[in-house]
Amino acid sequence: MKIADLARVRDEDLDGDVAGQASGAGARALMESIMETAREPVPNRSGRRRVMLRRGLAFGPVAAALAAALVVWTPFGGPATQYANAAVSLKTADDGGTGGDVIEVEINDPGADAGKFTEAFRAIGLDVEVRQAPVAPEDVGKLIGPELIEGSYPKGAGITISTREEGCRSAWCGKVSIPVGVTGRILVGIGRPAAPGELYATPVQIDVDPGGGVIKKYDPRNKPVARVRADLEAAGMKVGYVVMWDNPDGTAGGYAVDPANVKDEWLVQHVERIASDAVTVFVAAPAGLPKDSLPMIQHPSPDWWQN
């Protein structure tokens, strides 16, 4: 007898059983149920200088993705499992296996004093600081971040957020999960209207009317840089560029470059609005342009979480 014989079931046995088929009714129902849930990761702000993207990643409005359940690590012993004040309602819950708990968040009054938010998070055992964060109009009142300051995540873990729109009667509903063992300060933003020209805490999708202003359904993808630039500048936008190179494994990576190094005929991948008057245009590096061969520059980045 061997250790292999101690296995209660073998994969080969499951091969011949309907329970082992991904196409079985139960398995299909589970998959469809999972895919009905929101699925938006937190953007990686610390990697702002170099942008790593998965090919095919959908760039929906980042704001709609931001938010909700803070998985709680409770070193304090016996914190409340739920807490509500005029600013926010918080409740601890289970997470989907990321190694910690989750906090369900409903923002009652995004304009409330930040101290009220901090008070609520601390009441349920989470030592976070809450600040107002400048955002695009569509993100006002939403949860932004969280940002991790001077700390690190356990290997392979990270913060995830999800937004719940169905049944949400507050300014914002959702979940934020924070893995057990995270170190450092956690800072959460509540979206406030950004001042003209002020950098958004989180970029949003660009929809530009070539006649001026911003509209829905403007699609810059696969258009030449010169065309998109003309459209954006006609809308009063300042334009910055990130050039992206494809990697053999299907990912892509790039960084900010000087406009003088971006050719008119290169093709645009997508555009993000980073302030009321500024955008970042992501451009595909043309075939033959050696990877990382352009001089890197630094774009300004939001600093709402910094002292």
Binding site: V18, A19, A25, G26, A29
Partner: peptide, 15 residues
């Protein structure tokens, strides 16, 4: 969300 899967497993002679 696992109700259907649990039912499927319960109906499987193997499992």
């Amino acid at each position: 969300r696992t109700a259907a899967l649990r039912a499927q497993l319960a109906a499987s002679p193997l499992v």
